[in-house]
Simulated scan of single mutants.
Amino acid sequence: TYQGLLALPGVGDYTASAIASAAFGRREAAVDGNVLRVVMRLTDCRDDIADPKVKKAVRAQIQAVMPEAEADIRVFNQATMELGATVCAPNGPPRCLECPAMAFCQGRLRGTAEDLPVKGAKKPRRVEEKTVFLLVRDGKIALRKRPGTGLLAGLWEFPNVEGALDEAAAGAAVSVWGLEPRQWESRLTAKHIFTHVEWHMTGYTLEVAGDGPADFVWADAGALSDRAVPSAFGRYYTEAAARLKEE
């Protein structure tokens, strides 16, 4: 079902609808960017397609006119997506004279199709400063699991704190974890861009003594490769793997 698919991690509205209709013949409208553009032009709608409420309203509109038979549902969703990808296309004027909907498309009849859809300016990404630690102890490096909800939920990360810390402040942060800095080895900077946020990272590799917090896992090279560390920490992962290889 659509709701069952939507409950899966990483599955959003479009993916759930597309799978439910294509794989299981469910009467669910699959609204991607192409379909959204087609409907905005068909109805001469000037609402901002960046507004989630608008996309929800479009899905309801399409849902109301979808066919009932399984085979027709699959064809309908595929056809509306294909129409937007090939005829009512982005990045240029729509090919209205080739469109099967030309007779009733309000955007074509009113001469507004080329100006649609309306999309508001994106909000600038929020920049977050982080300090990432490659904490080395007895040939192993500290990892911890991220929270079960939110950005990169449930994946593994190298311990980090908010802010771009200099070495003195970084040493104090390590001490708060109950670890003793023994030898500072390298400093690495990196940046990772998500959809709505940008991480600017300062990283330190250092030898430490002590056990650290209970949620720290001390991983050797094999344990590191077995754990899912997101690409946001890619530069630090490469450094960690190289450092453990030396052990």
Rank of each mutant, 00 (worst) to 15 (best):
E157I: 10
V208E: 07
G92V: 07
E98Y: 07
V197R: 11
W184D: 01
I141Y: 06
T195L: 10
G120I: 01
K140I: 01
P181E: 08
G203T: 01
D138V: 09
W156D: 00
S186T: 10
K130G: 07
L135C: 02
A89L: 12
E185Y: 02
K119G: 03
K119D: 04
A168I: 12
H200Q: 15
G139W: 05
T112Q: 08
K122D: 05
T149D: 14
G203Y: 00
V174K: 02
W199L: 15
C99R: 06
R125D: 05
N160E: 11
A103K: 15
E114S: 12
M102P: 02
T131H: 07
R146T: 01
G120E: 01
S186C: 05
I193L: 15
E157G: 11
T202S: 01
A142S: 04
H192D: 00
E98A: 15
G163I: 05
G111D: 06
G92F: 01
P159H: 04
G154K: 08
R108H: 10
G203N: 04
R144Q: 14
D166W: 06
R95K: 13
L206I: 05
L151D: 10
G171R: 08
G120H: 03
K140F: 03
T189K: 15
E207S: 14
V208C: 08
F104P: 11
P100V: 00
A172F: 02
K191E: 15
W184A: 04
L134A: 08
G178V: 09
R144G: 06
Q106D: 11
P117Q: 09
L155V: 07
A142F: 00
R95V: 03
K191Q: 15
A121P: 04
R95L: 12
